[in-house]
């Protein structure tokens, strides 16, 4: 099986500090790959590299067998990579429907603005935001902003969707709803890279997980395998906890 997205020894430095070093992994078509790691592990940097905001200091990023690490972000978006934003909503002063229309218009090439707005309505329906279509994006509540982000990315008709911490700051009922939504996306044929630091969320939907820590890939595999990896436990819960875990397993 050929990979949809491949990272080969990707590194990125900021003024001498290595935010990512020598990261390599594949994203296969049709899977939900979880990317986890504690705060500051380099997750968002990685998203920014894949979407062309930054260029890697070294290494290669390959999408559908074409290197994309020297492309500008608009070109990458048009190839079929969409992302959601972690905190802010991109175009706060525009209406909800216009936000989504922007995705439809520029990435998939809806030929007119009217067509894009009609498409946008469909996507808003899908994420259940239709009633807010004509309010400014800035006035939405946090969970609704996340839905808007999702609708906007879907409007871009992506092959690969990077979901950057879509679960942060929403309650457990809403998390369940979101998980349902994400699963339905995969059925539509969209491959998903799910970036999270809450491990629990990732476990329930992902087929595979990669773990970043201090800018390096420390573990890769099935969710169960990853959670029992001592290095991951150490990274997440500190060395003391890891030591205790070790003792417990020895006693058994």
């Amino acid at each position: 099986m050929t990979a949809l997205l491949q990272l080969k020894n990707v590194s990125r430095n900021f003024g001498g500090l290595a935010a990512l070093s020598e990261v390599s992994f594949d994203v296969h078509p049709g899977e939900i790959l979880g990317l986890i790691g504690p705060n500051g592990a380099g997750k968002t940097t990685l998203v920014n590299l894949v979407t062309g905001v930054y260029r890697p200091s070294s290494g290669q990023i390959i999408f559908e067998d074409k290197p994309i690490n020297r492309l500008k972000s608009y070109a990458i978006a048009r190839m079929g990579i969409a992302r959601t934003f972690q905190v802010m909503q991109p175009f706060p002063e525009m209406t909800v429907v216009d936000n989504v229309a922007a995705g439809a218009l520029f990435a998939t090439g809806a030929s007119t603005l009217e067509e894009a707005k009609e498409l946008a309505q469909v996507h808003l329906e899908y994420v259940d935001l239709k009633k807010f279509a004509n309010t400014p994006a800035a006035s939405l509540t946090l969970p609704n902003r996340k839905r808007l982000e999702l609708a906007k990315s879907l409007a871009m008709n992506p092959k690969l969707l990077l979901l950057d911490e879509v679960m942060a700051g929403i309650n457990s009922v809403e998390i369940d709803q979101s998980l349902g939504l994400i699963k339905s996306l995969v059925e539509k044929g969209i491959t998903i890279l799910l970036i999270e630091h809450i491990m629990k969320v990732v476990m329930s939907v992902c087929s595979r997980v990669v773990v970043l820590h201090h800018g390096s890939l420390i573990c890769e595999g099935q969710p169960n395998y990853v959670t029992s990896d001592p290095q991951v436990i150490k990274a997440y819960l500190g060395s003391k906890f890891a030591a205790r875990q070790n003792r417990v397993s020895h006693e058994q």
């Binding site: 905001v53 978006a77 802010m88 229309a101 990435a107």
Partner: peptide, 19 residues
């Protein structure tokens, strides 16, 4: 429409597919 997007958030505009 694209210029309006750029005005609000240029990075996001790029990632939405605007050159």
């Amino acid at each position: 429409f694209g210029l309006k997007c750029i005005k609000q958030n240029e990075d996001a505009a790029g990632m939405t597919g605007i050159n």
